[in-house]
């Protein structure tokens, strides 16, 4: 599929007057989490039509959204207590940006806001000045994501190859959640996106991991009973094995 896509673009490139275009494909469309999973690395290949020397490319990979609660820690009678919760809705569980240049050199703030590129643009209300307090909460989400490598930026992570082709390496840390991920590619000219394309990626549990996970969620009571029986048998076997000596 990847080869076909690139080939078709290569042929089309001979027609210079057509509108700029960008396409992309991932080396893998499904990432499987198995028992030995410890993160994954994907390569996104893309092709552009009408790429000029001033154009820049931005690649965004966004994981499934989830609702978060952020609380502030405050010292009370000497111990740290969580207080003042704030809820954030539809926060990406994974978010990474790779680009040919640092984002601020590529795009105007307005363009980023309009296209919801960048965590800051996603997490804060558009066209509103953010209070210092809200900002502290938002930054806490970003820090937490960075700690688990769920959020990342690679200001020079997109490599432009010959003939309008480009490549970006996307890193998925071990803690990634399952679900559908969207990979968006943008072609920027004069601070504004002139072409974009979305492709998707699925992260799924597979094999034994999936079997356990599905059972724990689909038949929780049966799963709990099985856990107990297994543990009791293990205890019994251990007692029997060692008492014989």
């Amino acid at each position: 599929m990847l080869i076909a896509l690139l080939a078709s673009l290569m042929i089309q490139q001979t027609a210079p007057e057509e509108a700029p275009m960008i396409m992309a494909a991932l080396t893998q469309e499904t990432v499987e989490i198995r028992e030995n999973f410890s993160g994954a690395e994907l390569i996104l290949y893309g092709a552009t039509r009408g790429l000029t020397i001033e154009d820049e490319i931005v690649v965004v990979l966004r994981g499934p959204d989830s609702d978060l609660r952020v609380m502030q820690r405050e010292r009370n009678f000497g111990i740290w207590v969580n207080r003042a919760p704030r809820n954030f809705e539809a926060v990406p569980s994974y978010y990474s940006i790779a680009s040919t240049q640092p984002l601020e050199n590529i795009a105007t703030l307005e363009a980023l806001q309009r296209n919801a590129i960048g965590l800051r643009q996603i997490l804060s209300e558009p066209n509103q000045t953010e209070s210092a307090e809200t900002r502290a909460y938002r930054e806490a989400i970003e820090r937490a994501g960075n700690r688990d490598a769920l959020y990342s930026t690679a200001p020079r992570g997109v490599e432009v190859l010959d003939g309008g082709l480009f490549r970006a390496t996307l890193v998925l840390p071990p803690k990634i959640p399952v679900g559908t991920y969207d990979a968006e590619v943008y072609l920027f000219r004069d601070g504004r996106p002139i072409a974009s394309r979305t492709t998707s990626l699925r992260v799924v549990k597979a094999g034994f991991e999936r079997w356990i996970y599905d059972m724990a969620h689909d038949w929780p009571l049966l799963y709990g009973l099985l856990c107990v029986i297994l543990a009791a048998l293990a205890g019994y076997a251990a007692a029997a094995a060692f008492s014989r000596r």
């Binding site: 989830s66 609702d67 978060l68 609660r69 952020v70 609380m71 502030q72 820690r73 000497g78 111990i79 740290w80 969580n82 809820n87 502290a136 909460y137 806490a140 989400i141 820090r143 937490a144």
Partner: peptide
């Protein structure tokens, strides 16, 4: 752990 100043003064948790 209860009394030492944590490395981050905010905690982020999944909701509910």
């Amino acid at each position: 752990e209860l009394v030492l100043t944590p490395s981050d003064l905010f905690v982020v948790m999944p909701r509910g």
